[in-house]
């Protein structure tokens, strides 16, 4: 019963979030601010995680494909497919659910308990839309760019490790990257990124917006936001893969 109540509350909040904004130019400014706060500030962590993951995938492939019958270029191919199909969208989304999700839930939750949201409501502002919509829009647009960035950095990580360790010839790695290349993999990954961006921001915004009580409750709301966002990312990863790849 409580689950249905929660789902109902979520959709009611989303209907408030997507209602007509008071003034578009203020929302536009806020969207750019949020892109900076949530998107640009995540570039560092995405770069670090992606470069290491690309390098590790390449190393593991090289270690496990020690057969004279398997061409070395397959290592580059496997790295590319892993990065494009799963890592750069899904794994990066899970990492960002922790970083961005907790940030959003704690920011909005703190605004709730310090009456800042009440102050907006008193001014006649649609607080749900004013606070959550710019975050959703900015992440839905920016997360696909982060995904492309992660793909490029991850593949570069694999290339670097092939040079640094000499475990495979960099030319073979590059050959593998172009082997059976289908641009649809990128489209599929970008669609997933946009959906995950929406899930992270809307779910975290929901838990923050309905936080009550004190700082402890804000902490709990933040944790719940991360856990629920992560679960929904995994569920939607399955659904989207079924829809777009099979």
């Amino acid at each position: 019963m409580k689950l249905f109540e929660l789902i109902g509350k979520y959709f009611i909040l989303m209907s408030k979030v997507f209602s007509r904004p008071e003034k578009f130019y203020i929302y536009r400014r806020r969207i750019f601010d949020e892109m900076d706060a949530l998107g640009f500030n995540s570039i560092g962590i995405v770069a670090i995680v992606s470069v290491f993951m690309g390098a590790v995938i390449t190393l593991q492939m090289a270690i496990n494909l020690e057969s004279p019958f398997i061409p070395k270029s397959l290592i580059g191919y496997a790295t590319r497919e892993s990065m494009f199909l799963e890592f750069s969208s899904t794994v990066v989304a899970l990492i960002l659910a922790g970083k961005v999700g907790s940030n959003i839930a704690s920011e909005i939750g703190t605004m709730r308990i310090t009456e800042q949201i009440d102050a907006l409501e008193i001014m006649g502002v649609n607080s749900a839309s004013y606070l959550i919509l710019p975050k959703i829009v900015s992440m839905v647009f920016f997360f696909p760019f982060l995904t492309i960035f992660s793909m490029a950095v991850g593949i570069f990580g694999g290339y670097l490790i092939s040079i640094a360790t000499g475990i495979l010839n960099p030319e073979s790695y590059l050959d593998g990257l172009w082997y059976d290349f289908r641009p649809y993999s990128i489209t599929y990954s970008l669609i997933k990124a946009a959906v995950f961006g929406f899930l992270i921001t809307s779910i975290s915004g929901f838990y923050g917006y309905f936080a009550r009580g004190n700082s402890l409750e804000v902490g709990r709301a933040s944790t719940k936001a991360v856990v629920v966002s992560s679960i929904f990312i995994l569920i939607f990863n399955l659904i989207l893969t079924q829809l777009f790849l099979i």
Partner: peptide, 13 residues
């Protein structure tokens, strides 16, 4: 037409 002053000020941080 309403202005409100909250206990903690409630300024946007």
């Amino acid at each position: 037409d309403i202005g409100m002053i909250f206990q903690g000020g409630a300024l946007l941080d």
